[in-house]
């Protein structure tokens, strides 16, 4: 009985064959000759299962970033049977000048480990496997550190994929300050982190830029199979810069109780050189979000101005008191 060939061996043989061919191989040639397919190939049959396997293997190669190219036969564009496949070596290989020092590799390993729990953990793990091909031993300066980005917000993977495909998405969003979610339909541009929070920027139906907190996307992110032409440029860098401008412009004055949790946490971010400061100038990008945080500090933080932030905090505190003042269920 012939040995069962594991998928990675079949895919490896496929990569070798596609790298070795100069003019490309037709699907027929691949299925009938490449190790892992050839054993199951029936010269008389329709080979439907084998063709489906080939389609899945092509996806697997593309997922790994291997530049799979299709060449249409001259004079017969789109003829599926005569289409040829190849992997151009120049596009496949890591450029010779991309090298890393042991210290850089130590940093990259730590950068990859950041994703241990998240959806990008598989991607970073495979990147680190590929880096080992270079034979550089990382130095150990990063022992003793376990930084983790959760990206547990299940929105992360579908959003980054939709950004790659330029696909319009829909999702339910719970705005800070609201108690129920509303559906949104958005052209996704960038996922980024700002001041420790994961955010996502996209365009609405009128192409106005909107920013969302990933943690407040409270349901499935769905693709709509509708695609759009994204604006040119580095969207993530632009989104960060946009938010930074808002952040720089919007300030509140907050008085904190010395020695309190609020003094420690806000003081660290906004206290400047004086660790004992009790009146802080607090920058923010979203008023409702800051009001939530300040309400959490209870009596330890008091908004002096602006008035609408003070009102937002007071109304939150009133709602909490109303909800918890009576015996449970009375509300």
């Amino acid at each position: 009985m012939p040995r069962i060939i594991p998928p990675e061996e079949r895919q490896f043989s496929l990569v070798l064959a596609l790298l070795a061919t100069e003019h490309g191989l037709t699907k027929e040639q691949i299925l009938s000759t490449v190790d892992g397919y050839a054993q199951k190939y029936d010269p008389d049959g329709p080979n439907a299962n084998l063709e489906r396997q080939f389609e899945r293997d092509k996806d697997a190669l593309r997922e790994l970033g291997l530049p799979l190219e299709t060449v249409d036969p001259p004079g017969e564009p789109g003829n599926n049977q005569l289409q040829r496949y190849r992997i151009p070596k120049g596009d496949y290989e890591l450029p010779g000048d991309v090298t890393f020092t042991p210290t850089e590799l130590g940093l990259l390993q730590l950068a990859g480990a950041v994703w241990r729990e998240g959806t990008l953990s598989g991607d970073s793990r495979r990147a680190l496997i590929k880096l080992r091909a270079l034979g550089v031993e990382p130095d150990g300066v990063m022992l003793g550190y376990a930084p983790r980005l959760r990206a547990l917000e299940p929105a992360f993977a579908p959003l980054t994929e939709a950004i790659e495909r330029h696909e319009i998405v829909t999702f339910p969003y719970l705005r800070p300050g609201r108690t129920s979610a509303r559906p949104h339909t958005i052209k996704p541009l960038a996922v980024f982190q700002f001041r420790g929070r994961w955010l996502f920027q996209g365009l609405d139906h009128a192409d106005r830029p909107l920013t969302f907190l990933l943690s407040r996307i409270v349901g499935e992110v769905k693709g709509t199979k509708t695609y759009f032409e994204p604006p040119a440029g580095d969207q993530a860098a632009r989104a960060v810069a946009d938010l930074q401008r808002v952040w720089d412009r919007q300030t509140a004055t907050v008085e904190v109780v010395p020695g309190s949790d609020a003094a420690a946490r806000l003081g660290r971010r906004f206290g400047g050189d004086d660790p004992e400061a009790t009146v802080l100038t607090v920058h923010y990008s979203d008023l409702a979000l800051l009001a939530d945080e300040l309400a959490g500090y209870g009596p330890e933080a008091l908004v002096i101005e602006p008035e609408h932030l003070k009102q937002a905090v007071v109304s939150r505190l009133e709602a909490i008191l109303w909800q918890h003042a009576e015996a449970e269920g009375a509300a």
Binding site: E63, L64, G65, L66, P67, K89, D91, Y92, E93, L94, G96, L108, A111, G112, W115, L120, S121, D123, S124, R126, A127, K130, A133, L134, T160, E164
Partner: peptide, 14 residues
Amino acid sequence: DDAPKFSAREAAAL
């Protein structure tokens, strides 16, 4: 002959 490139998502993760 040489190591493969990273996929776009692999590079983005790092």
